[in-house]
Design a protein around this nucleic acid. Structure first.
Lengths: 339, 339
DNA sequence: AATTAGCACTCGACCATCGAGAGTGCTAAC
DNA sequence: GTTAGCACTCTCGATGGTCGAGTGCTAATT
């Protein structure tokens, strides 16, 4: 457990770093939040926090940078109180309340406002929960591969291709198909997400298990990429943040954000509870490397599940992002309640 | 007119620069294409070409870099013969010929193959020519602004907002509306593109003319952004080209490519003739700064106009891009003919 | 025992300098 | 008109030196 002073200092480092994007020194902390302490004392504390894994020193004569652990601490300590200005609140409301025909229009509006106010990239993932699976087909392509097709009430998802092992005959393919249908027909495609293949379920032979796992994995990917609508807005906001002064980072970020299945994955892999905001910090919490992902669940209509959120560098303005998402999810829940 | 040797040298510089992305020296040219000349002679020629505006020298001890004028020369000299390998041809064919339900699917496939083979960003702009304008509405928002709405047979385009001058009354608004309807009802939205506002048409008063011009400009922008479907693929390919090692350039490029109206504009502003490939080099030829745009027109169905093409740095592999677009447009024209 | 003042130390950022190498332009000879 | 030869210019990378920021440690203080 951290002493009160350590907490204060740690928060100050994180706050300062979020603001300036450069290492924070003992003197700065003294100025901003601990005038009644000397910088030497703070240095001792910083040193302690470093050895506890909260801080990192890029080099000996630089200040401290918060680690992902520090950001996690910071976010946990955060109060839920909003930091939005009246103008920002008004903007959000006016944008969401003007009634824009179709759901997709509304979603566009949502991503728009979020990215505009937060200056990060925003994402909304939509899944029609009423659109359930009616069949799963495994189609032998006669070239050692099979095509997997998921049929739902409203559409057909294809393009999943998997190698068939040589000792796998037609009968087994049919068995596999039957098994998949038994498991998933009537369910929503998003339920692949929570499904993990149990190795002992079908067959003890390692090879077959491996194939079955491959099939369900591939189906999962398909379901993510095509079964859910992903709307992204404000990708270009990354250029505002100094971690993306490097072309390599930009490239990595854009390729992550551009991949629908990754986004669907990252933005729906949370508690699934409506009204709560989830924060994932860095790769260790399953966000893309160097990134944080903030999401919240919201019903976008009867039987339409939605996940709205923000993706950006770990050095993110969490206060603002959390406030915005909180505000927006409340408005939406409200809107939905009235209909 | 350039001497044969100058042409040879100029082509060699462009070729070399396209390949290496670094200045080309006299010695290199000697090696690659003019063994029977000394490097000194080539230097004289290079110097002449430079003063003619074809070449640029970044600094005195560097080789030459081709100017946009040089690329224009190079492209004009290019023969139409294809430089594609058998594998590439086969890939294109197999991708386009597997029949993918909807037109949008096909378009996705087209952009996909193009960007995959050329390693540039590819764009397809689709315009349903049968979808004509049924009405244009100017709606006074009572706050000194008006909302402009274009109604076509299948959809409603809105969101164009323009200030109304104070001395503009309701009657004039109606007049303006009547005028616009008279001009454009029954036509396709893309025809705004070719429309330029004639100052003397309605009123001699400068102010009103200015407003009318503003309205048509705004309508144009709307028509471009929303009246045509723009499909972009392979944005991330820019990272493969060294001109985009700089974050600033990446940002500029992505913001250009991300703006639908700019893309619709750039990719449809050509002769409009089917089967011919148009090349725009650099800002002076109305491509985005530092970029070249290669396009070709193709009917994507009865009454559906399409423009398919590639956008990338001026230092583009024109041989390949032209070959690919040529091949693809031929296939599509063929496909359409059969239906 | 915790805090603090003071100081030596370290390291990055910035700048100037230097030499090597590339490639040119010019001159004079062919 | 072409070419060999050479001086010249400029970039690039390496080297070194100074400055300032910020630390860690020590010894004194509370």
């Amino acid at each position: 457990m951290l002493s009160l002073r350590k907490k204060k200092i740690l928060s100050a480092v994180v706050d300062g770093y979020i603001q300036k994007a450069s290492p924070v020194s003992s003197k700065e902390i003294q100025k901003t939040c601990l005038q009644d302490c000397s910088s030497a004392t703070i240095r001792n504390e910083l040193s302690a926090l470093e050895s506890m894994g909260y801080l990192v020193q890029p080099h000996v004569s630089a200040g401290r940078i918060p680690s992902e652990k520090a950001f996690r601490f910071y976010v946990n300590e955060l109060t839920t109180e909003s930091c939005l200005t009246d103008e920002e609140n008004a903007l959000i409301e006016s944008r969401l309340l003007r009634n824009h025909g179709s759901l997709d229009e509304v979603i566009k509006q949502i991503t728009n406002v979020i990215s505009e106010i937060t200056h990060y990239t925003s994402v909304v993932v939509k899944a029609d929960m009423a659109d359930t699976i009616t069949a799963i087909k495994l189609l032998d392509l006669s070239n050692g591969q099979m095509l997997m097709v998921i049929v739902t009430e409203t559409r057909v998802l294809k393009d999943g291709i998997v190698d068939i092992p040589e000792d796998f005959d037609d009968l087994m393919l049919l068995q596999a198909q039957a098994w998949l249908n038994k498991l998933f027909v009537g369910k929503h495609i998003s339920q692949f997400l929570n499904f993990t293949y149990p190795y002992t379920l079908v067959n003890d032979q390692f090879k077959l298990n491996k194939l079955f796992k491959k099939i369900t994995d591939e189906l999962k990917k398909q379901a993510l990429a095509n079964g859910m609508d992903v709307c992204v807005c404000g990708e270009h906001n990354i250029f505002k943040h100094s971690e993306y002064n490097d072309v390599g980072n930009v490239q990595k970020f854009l390729s992550e954000v551009g991949s629908k299945d990754k986004m669907a994955q990252v933005f729906t892999d949370d508690g699934g509870q409506e009204g709560f905001v989830t924060v994932k910090i860095g790769a260790s919490e399953n966000a893309p490397e160097g990134c944080s992902v903030v999401t919240t669940r919201v019903a976008l209509g009867t039987n339409i599940a939605g996940s709205i959120g923000v993706i950006g560098p770990v050095r993110m303005n969490y206060k603002k992002v959390l406030s915005v998402l909180d505000k927006i999810s409340n408005i939406i829940i409200d809107m939905m309640g009235k209909e």
